[in-house]
């Protein structure tokens, strides 16, 4: 398995490099950022000094070469705004984002999978219809709108939770549930359809015939055999989840990487944008790797090779 993981990682490297290269040119194409970091009435000397300090006065090929050369040594440049290594800024905000992502995942999975199982089990019954509409609703409301409406209803009107910030478990509830809505909806759908594929199989009938309890039949046999597509979708959705983090962290003033990302993009803080995108890419790749490993745990038939 170790060898398998190593091969997978080697496969991933060119993708990560590609992401970085696209990101480099995309950001450079959006124009000279100097004016965004200096006051509009800054002197020409000050502008020139800023450009020289950050290498923005060099030609694009030269900048690119320097960027690749430094990146290969693990140096992603200094933030134009904060004058500290861009990766440090990401690292500082990493715990907050991981906390949010994990809570989101936890909510989405603990609610999504049982609902998906129930919908499949009672296929065509009102409960199935109800759950499916719930899923569609979750998928049809933009994250920012969920966020703002939940702030108004739960934090402002009912005073149940704080409107934002990162201050203990209570402040995690709103951003995590907001972010979890879309993912939960997807998990419901995938669990349902995957369960439907499995539930009429012969071994399920066999299990029932053997007199095992309905719960064991449904959870161990049916769910156990239909979980792989669910894991795949969750891993694939990690990219979407990270995109959602950008909006959610802004709405709930959550001090994470997503907010850093949006600020860096608006400010054209290239090194930080690059660092964030690389970070997102690594998390995504890692999530998919974890999914691969999980396969072999939940389904002994899958052997990593």
């Amino acid at each position: 398995m170790g060898k398998y993981l190593l091969t997978r990682l080697l496969y991933v490297l060119p993708s990560l490099l590609g992401v970085l290269i696209i990101c480099f040119f995309l950001t450079r194409l959006s124009g000279d950022p100097t004016h965004l970091f200096m006051p509009v009435d800054a002197t020409d000397e000050a502008l020139a000094a800023f450009r020289a300090k950050h290498g923005l006065d060099r030609s694009l090929p030269e900048q690119f070469w320097l960027f690749v050369y430094n990146a290969l040594q693990g140096d992603f440049g200094n933030s134009l705004r904060f004058s500290v290594p861009a990766m440090n800024l990401v690292a500082e905000r990493l715990p907050a984002t991981l906390e949010l992502a994990m809570a989101t995942l936890l909510i989405a999975v603990t609610i999504g999978i049982p609902l998906g199982v129930m919908a499949a089990y009672w296929r065509g019954r009102p409960i199935d219809t109800g759950i499916r509409y719930l899923a569609a609703l979750g998928q049809s409301v933009p994250t920012f709108y969920w966020g703002i409406v939940s702030i108004i209803v739960l934090a402002l009107w009912m005073r149940l939770l704080p409107t934002g910030g990162r201050d203990g478990l209570t402040s995690l509830v709103l951003p995590a549930t907001t972010l979890a809505t879309t993912m939960m909806a997807l998990i419901i759908r995938v669990t349902r359809s995957s369960m439907l594929n499995v539930i009429e199989q012969d071994y399920i009938r066999t299990a029932r015939a053997k007199g095992q309890t309905e719960f064991v039949v449904v959870v161990r046999h049916a769910l156990g055999n239909s979980i792989i597509p669910v894991i795949t979708v969750i891993a694939l959705q990690f990219g979407v989840l990270l995109g959602g983090v950008v909006v959610t962290e802004t709405v709930f003033s959550w001090p994470g990487v997503g907010r850093l990302a949006i600020q860096a993009i608006y400010a054209r803080d290239y090194p930080v944008v690059q660092a964030v995108v690389l970070f997102f890419a690594v998390v995504f790749v890692f999530a998919n790797l974890v999914a691969d490993v999980l396969y072999s745990f939940v389904d002994p038939r899958v052997r990593l090779k």
Binding site: I148, I151, I152, A155, L156, R159, T163, G164, G165, T250, V251, F252, S253, P255, R259
Partner: peptide, 15 residues
């Protein structure tokens, strides 16, 4: 406290 979203900032002071 930095609160980037206008609506959230307004809701926070109101609450």
């Amino acid at each position: 406290r930095p609160v980037p979203d206008d609506m959230a900032r307004a809701a926070g002071i109101e609450a």
